[in-house]
């Protein structure tokens, strides 16, 4: 049987199918991530030499100012960037596959708007802690996704109906968000606006742990389901003939994607473009590999970490939230792609 660019690894009655180019790319990206993370730990308003950073992270030097800065400020921020990026990358890959649309992303089903509604409600009516905002955004996003899915369930129109319903629910919620912003107290609205811009400033360990846990558990699950999802791209009928439980698979994968996006948005606020760009880039670097989940994760992590390091390193007089930086860079990149396709 021809596996294309895939290899199969057998062990007794078990076998695993893998694509060497994808693994190679993922390994390469991980090395890049490590280098960027190491660099990110050393720079900032106080420079910490790399040797010290290694000692601190290894646990040899737990006291002292530089240890506190590295362990409590820089490390959580960098981990947040990596895992938010990874979660968004995988989530985007799933949505692009399910909607059979290269522009698919969790935003399409009104997800980000729902998360924002959750966060805004909490910010404007109660004065919550940062952790509570994280939780509210996560719950808001999940609830929106659930509503959209339940509405779209009837009759089963596949991915297309889901997107249409998501569009309707999303624009209703964005009106609610507008109402909340206009009606709310000005100070609270300002705070909400900063949350809406998406930022990794001042993330703490308590926000990073749930996200890390989610990514570590869900990404392998998605990797496992990726092959069946590829079959689903050929149409429900063919997939069913090949023994894929279509509805169950779709529901499960959407749930994974939504939970990942919810955790990411809850931690960092809305981050533009990573979910769209990471799977696209991985696919264009890996022709012939169906659904590069692991690579999308690494690519998303790399892009977000790079954007975060850039806004810290750039000598700008204004503060640029990382969520908008990714939007500007990603949007310009897409425009550049368009002008090249004559």
């Amino acid at each position: 049987m021809n596996h294309g660019r895939y290899r199969v690894w057998h062990w007794r009655s078990w076998s695993v199918r893998y694509a060497p180019p994808a693994l190679l790319l993922a390994a390469l990206l991980m090395v890049l991530l490590l280098v960027m993370a190491a660099y990110g730990l050393t720079v900032g308003s106080m420079r910490v030499p790399l040797a010290d950073v290694v000692a601190i992270v290894m646990g040899h030097d737990e006291s002292g100012l530089s240890a506190r800065i590295v362990l409590d400020i820089r490390l959580p921020r960098i981990l947040a960037a990596i895992f938010v990026g990874a979660a968004l990358g995988v989530s985007g890959a799933i949505f692009q596959s399910i909607s059979r649309n290269p522009l698919g992303s969790p935003d399409l089903i009104g997800f980000t708007t729902g998360a924002a509604t959750g966060a805004l409600t909490l910010i404007l009516f109660f004065s919550p802690s940062v952790l509570q905002i994280t939780l509210a955004a996560t719950v808001g996003g999940l609830a929106t996704a659930l509503i959209v899915y339940l509405f779209a369930l009837k009759g089963g129109g596949g991915g297309y109906r889901l997107i249409l319903i998501g569009l309707g629910v999303g624009s209703t919620l964005s009106a609610v968000n507008g109402l909340l912003l206009v009606r709310g107290d000005l100070d609270d609205a300002l705070w909400a606006n900063i949350w809406l811009a998406g930022s990794l400033n001042g993330r703490t360990w308590s926000q990073v742990w749930p996200l890390m846990l989610g990514v570590v558990v869900l990404v392998p699950v998605v990797c496992f389901g990726a092959r069946a999802l590829t079959l689903l791209e050929m149409g429900d009928d063919i997939a069913r003939q090949l023994g894929v439980p279509t509805e169950r698979l779709r529901l499960g994968m959407i749930m994974c994607a939504v939970i990942l996006a919810a955790l990411a948005t809850g931690t960092a606020g809305p981050i533009a473009f990573i979910a769209l760009a990471a799977p696209q880039l991985s696919r264009s670097l890996l022709p012939g590999v169906a659904l590069p989940v692991l690579c999308s994760a690494c690519m998303g992590a790399g892009l977000l970490l790079l954007a975060d390091l850039l806004i810290q390193a750039l000598p700008l007089a204004v503060s640029v939230p990382v969520g908008r930086m990714t939007g500007i860079v990603g949007g310009l990149y897409l425009l550049w792609l368009l002008t090249r396709q004559r």
Binding site: A197, F273, V318, P321, R324, I328, G331, L335
Partner: peptide, 22 residues
């Protein structure tokens, strides 16, 4: 794509400016 870029710029301006402006 242009919308994303322009709205990001808009938000950067509102985040960095005075509250009266927002």
């Amino acid at each position: 794509a242009l919308s994303v870029v322009l709205l990001a710029l808009t938000q950067i301006i509102t985040v960095n400016s005075d509250e009266v402006i927002f």
